[in-house]
Design a protein around this nucleic acid. Sequence first.
DNA 1: AACAATGATTCTCG
DNA 2: CGAGAATCATTGTT
Length: 352
Amino acid sequence: MDDQTRMMTGLTGLGGLAQADVGDPDSVRKQQSLGQPQQDIGDILQQIMAITDESLDEAQARKHALNCHRMKPALFSVLCEIKEKTVLSIRGVQEEDPPDPQIMRLDNMLLAEGVSGPEKGGGSAAAAAAAAAAGGSPTDSSIEHSDYRAKLAQIRQIYHSELEKYEQACSEFTNHVMNLLREQSRTRPISPKEIERMVAIIHRKFSSIQMQLKQSTCEAVMILRSRFLDARRKRRNFNKQATEVLNEYFYSHLSNPYPSEEAKEELAKKCGITVSQVSNWFGNKRIRYKKNIGKFQEEANLYAVKTAVDAANVSAQASQANSPATPNSGTTCSSFVIHREGSAAVNYVFDF
DNA sequence: AACAATGATTCTCG
DNA sequence: CGAGAATCATTGTT
């Protein structure tokens, strides 16, 4: 609202010029030299000055009265004359502002973040995700990005609606001022250039408000980004079933616990996690298992038995003669057992 | 609160 | 680019 008040002062500044013109004793002398009664002119000037203090209706009536006043054309021409002289001093003040580097910076950033620029509907959400992933594989990370995208969309929506509001307010205000100036130009001389200048001033003021909007939008995006990046570190432990599936695979492939890309995808689907999460899990598991086999012995045996039982069940269902004591996933399972027994806590390396 | 477990990240290396 | 290793940061347990 600070800008608005400043805008108003800018506006009254123009009006003030006219008042100064009117108050110029020079003009009074000129009027006197025309042979008109001084009192009369003084009255008119008083009336003009007082217009702003009156209610709209009164002012309207008074304005109409002034416009019909017999002295009006003469007064107007005098005002024009004075204006001619003073306008030279005003001209120097005009300076064309080059495109603000800061606002360009903000614009670029908003564009880069996808806040401004082409509206991204639901259809191109994948494109937005891909852009946000920036090099990551599009299959994963889309889940993590959905929250981010939703928040970004929220910011974008607020930004656009605010921008629209500002633009509307700006054009409304410009129209209002232009109408006002046109109306006033009947009473006092206002060149089109001046109106132009006034419009430029208004636009400058509004664009400074716009810059504030852009700035705070940028800040919001930055905050969102940092929160999001922090949030990526946040994690939820996988549910029991998922851990079970992963462990089952790990211990039944202990001699070569490196799932292929297809296996990873299948595990990911089974566990309801992403492929990269599966990769993370196996990476962590391998290194932690290797570091301290002893700690995992119990778990390993558990899953060895589990897979053995499963295998036995499968074979039983298949009406085969295998006893539960001779699991058919033997190669990997037994290799683990042998290794365990042979080198309890010493460095264990996977059989590659 | 201290500690362990665990998922994610970052770095180096082949 | 993927694996290993170290590390971070959160979650779960005691």
